[in-house]
Computed example of a mutant assay.
Amino acid sequence: MSEPTLPAGRPLTAARPATGSGGGANLADILERVLDKGIVIAGDIQVNLLDIELLTIKVRLLVASVDRAKEMGIDWWEHDPSLSSGSRRQDLVEENTRLREQLELARGGRSEQ
């Protein structure tokens, strides 16, 4: 009896993923390809009750490397103050200091109870 084959004529056993130490290399290759090319996952979730739409959630997910995202014109993380460090954080520290000084001046004019 002959071994089952795939349409290309290769034995079915050759199509099985490698296990053990070679499996990690395959996963790394797949991850590298996904990050290089990018992948988009889109979906909508809708909750209805008696034909009345109660909730709609639209999910759009892009997985790509930073370089690939920049090539596509996506760079929102560079302008998001909650994600960027440095100048924005320093601005907040300076504003906090200034407000504390103003509070102390306002308290200084009145007697504390």
Rank of each mutant, 00 (worst) to 15 (best):
I39Q: 06
E104F: 05
A8D: 15
D29E: 13
E101G: 01
A42T: 15
V63L: 12
P17T: 08
R98T: 08
K37Q: 11
D91F: 02
E3Q: 09
S21H: 06
S87I: 08
Q113N: 12
L31D: 08
D29N: 14
R100C: 04
G23E: 10
E71Q: 14
G38D: 03
K58S: 15
T97E: 09
I74A: 04
G20F: 03
V47F: 04
K37W: 02
A106N: 08
V47G: 00
G9A: 09
G23W: 06
S84L: 05
T97I: 13
E78T: 14
D80F: 02
A106K: 11
M72I: 07
K70I: 09
I74P: 01
P4W: 03
E53V: 06
G23D: 06
G108L: 10
P4E: 06
W76R: 07
S84M: 12
P11A: 10
L54D: 01
V40S: 06
D36T: 10
L54A: 04
Q46N: 06
A69N: 01
L62Y: 03
P81Q: 03
T97A: 12
L49N: 10
N96H: 11
G86C: 06
D29V: 02
V93C: 00
T19G: 10
S111C: 01
E78L: 15
D67S: 14
E53P: 00
L99V: 11
L12W: 04
N26A: 15
T5N: 05
V34R: 02
E94F: 02
T13S: 15
D44A: 10
P17L: 10
L49R: 12
Q90E: 13
R88P: 00
V93Y: 01
L35M: 13
Q102K: 14
D75I: 00
K70A: 13
R33N: 09
L103E: 07
A28S: 14
M1W: 02
L61C: 06
R88K: 08
G109I: 10
P11S: 07
G109M: 10
P17V: 07
I74V: 14
S85G: 15
I45V: 11
L50Y: 07
R98S: 09
G23H: 09
G20L: 05
L50D: 14
Q46L: 11
G109K: 13
S21K: 10
S65K: 02
I52Y: 01
E112A: 12
L35Y: 05
R10E: 11
A64N: 03
P4V: 04
N96R: 15
Q113A: 14
E101F: 02
V40F: 04
S87T: 10
E112V: 12
G20Y: 03
E3S: 06
S2Q: 09
D29I: 02
T56W: 00
L27H: 03
L92I: 09
R60G: 08
A69G: 01
R107S: 09
K70P: 00
L12K: 04
V47W: 01
I57V: 15
V63C: 03
D44H: 01
S111L: 10
A25H: 06
R107T: 08
E112M: 06
L83G: 06
Q46P: 00
G73Q: 05
A25R: 13
D29Q: 11
E53H: 00
L105N: 08
S65W: 02
L27R: 11
M72W: 06
E95L: 14
W76S: 14
L103N: 03
